[in-house]
Amino acid sequence: GSLMYASIFGNVSAIIQRLYSGTARYHTQMLRVREFIRFHQIPNPLRQRLEEYFQHAWSYTNGIDMNAVLKGFPECLQADICLHLNRSLLQHCKPFRGATKGCLRALAMKFKTTHAPPGDTLVHAGDLLTALYFISRGSIEILRGDVVVAILGKNDIFGEPLNLYARPGKSNGDVRALTYCDLHKIHRDDLLEVLDMYPEFSDHFWSSLEITFNLRDTNMIPGSPGSTELEGGFSRQRKRKLSFRRRTDKDTEQPGEVSALGPGRAGAGPSSRGRPGGPWGESPSSGPSSPESSEDEGPGRSSSPLRLVPFSSPRPPGEPPGGEPLMEDCEKSSDTCNPLSGAFSGVSNIFSFWGDSRGRQYQELPRCPAPTPSLLNIPLSSPGRRPRGDVESRLDALQRQLNRLETRLSADMATVLQLLQRQMTLVPPAYSAVTTPGPGPTSTSPLLPVSPLPTLTLDSLSQVSQFMACEELPPGAPELPQEGPTRRLSLPGQLGALTSQPLHRHGSDPGS
Rank of each mutant, 00 (worst) to 15 (best):
G126N: 06
D127T: 03
F134I: 06
G138Q: 01
I140M: 05
I142C: 04
R144E: 11
L152F: 01
K154W: 01
K154H: 08
N155S: 09
N155E: 11
G159F: 01
L162N: 04
L162H: 12
N163V: 04
Y165A: 07
A166F: 09
R167P: 10
G169T: 01
G169K: 01
G169P: 01
K170P: 05
S171Q: 01
R176V: 11
A177T: 12
H184E: 06
D189M: 05
D189A: 08
L191K: 01
E193P: 03
M197Y: 10
M197E: 09
P199A: 05
E200V: 03
E200H: 04
S207T: 12
L209W: 04
F213R: 03
T218C: 14
T218L: 10
N219L: 08
M220I: 06
P222C: 07
P222H: 09
G223C: 08
S227F: 12
T228G: 10
E229V: 08
G232T: 11
R236T: 14
R240G: 08
K241D: 13
R245I: 13
K250V: 11
K250G: 09
D251A: 10
D251F: 13
G256P: 14
E257Y: 07
V258R: 09
G262Y: 10
G264V: 09
G264T: 11
A266P: 06
G267F: 08
A268K: 07
A268H: 10
G269S: 12
P270L: 11
S271R: 04
S271A: 10
P279S: 09
S285H: 07
G287S: 14
S290W: 11
E295R: 10
D296C: 06
D296Y: 08
S303P: 08
L308F: 06
L308K: 11
S313D: 08
E319P: 06
P320Y: 15
P320W: 06
G322E: 03
G323Q: 15
G323L: 10
S333H: 12
S334M: 12
S341G: 10
F344G: 11
S345R: 12
N349Q: 09
G359Y: 08
Q361L: 08
Y362H: 09
L365R: 07
R367E: 10
C368S: 07
P373H: 09
S374E: 06
N377V: 03
N377S: 14
R388P: 05
D396Q: 10
D396I: 14
L398C: 04
N403F: 15
R408A: 06
A411N: 04
L417V: 14
Q418R: 11
L419F: 06
L420H: 09
Y431P: 04
Y431R: 15
T435I: 12
T436W: 08
P437S: 09
P437H: 07
S443R: 10
S443K: 06
P449L: 08
P452L: 08
L453D: 13
T455M: 10
T455E: 10
L456N: 09
L458N: 04
S462H: 14
S462G: 09
Q463F: 09
S465M: 07
L473Y: 15
A477C: 10
P481I: 10
P485E: 15
L491Y: 04
P502A: 12
L503Q: 05
R505P: 09
H506R: 05
G511P: 05
